[in-house]
Nucleic acid binder design. Structure first.
Lengths: 127, 127
DNA sequence: GTTCATCTACTACATTTGTAGTATAGTTAA
DNA sequence: TTAACTATACTACAAATGTAGTAGATGAAC
């Protein structure tokens, strides 16, 4: 279990990259993020070391290069982050979040159909 | 428009308290937060001053006391925070968020009925 | 053997966030 | 007049976050 409950913005980007590639290196993450969020190589390195300290990543040296992989599952992290966000912004109420989203988002027909299907699946599960 | 796009955890608590009471003082916010998130009086004061600097609050001195009120609407802030959260955790996709919530939350019959009603309202709007 | 590229380990600083104290002033009660 | 209380304005420090440099080691190419 990570020491710190929530990830910062740039930590998210790094973790998403590592979840995507499985096991990776500083160089690979640096290159993957370069098009959209360019930082120095050593900045990426610092972030990844700190994520090891925070127990989000583990590190293994193979030859001269460190390889990093996630110690936490993406779905578990998403669950935790979503829970924190809803607790903070909507007093923990997922109903309030849903109502807010329906109020403020331009859901089109396709979106609504997709959500209907999710409801149907959930109702089947609940039977 | 605020200088900083997102609020920290404790800033949220302060803003929520101010949205609730309209115009308020440091003492009132301090007392309101005391039961659940107790901090020193001067900590609350510092936070409120910083929120003035960040243009989330405005401050007016009446007599010897400073009164604070929100410069941003709660709904606008919720919209912005939600958008940032979804962009970060779900690549900007509200559909992915919805799917994730249905996967991971124990929605019961009542929840599902409520969401159905929201969909029906939205469909009426879209016609 | 030299040069260049790559990488690690370590270091450093600025800014933001979290937390809370102190000096001073004003008001009220005794 | 004094004491107690409240509030402001200012100050201060620790920790976290954001950012990125440098020294040295290793390997490949020449």
């Amino acid at each position: 279990m990570p020491k710190v409950e929530t990830l910062t913005k740039f930590e998210w980007e790094i973790m998403k990259q590592i979840w995507k590639s499985g096991r990776t290196t500083v160089r690979e993450v640096h290159e993957a993020l370069a098009p959209t969020q360019s930082r120095a190589y050593t900045t990426i390195q610092t972030y990844m070391e700190r994520l090891v300290d925070k127990k989000y990543l583990s590190k293994k040296k193979i030859g001269l290069v460190n390889f990093y992989s996630a110690r936490v599952k993406e779905t578990d992290t998403l669950r935790r982050e979503t829970s924190h966000f809803v607790k903070r912004a909507f007093d923990g109420s997922f109903s309030k979040l849903a109502a807010f989203l329906f109020d403020t988002q331009d859901f089109d027909e396709k979106d609504l159909e997709a959500i209907k299907r999710l409801i149907e699946e959930k109702e089947r599960e609940n039977d």
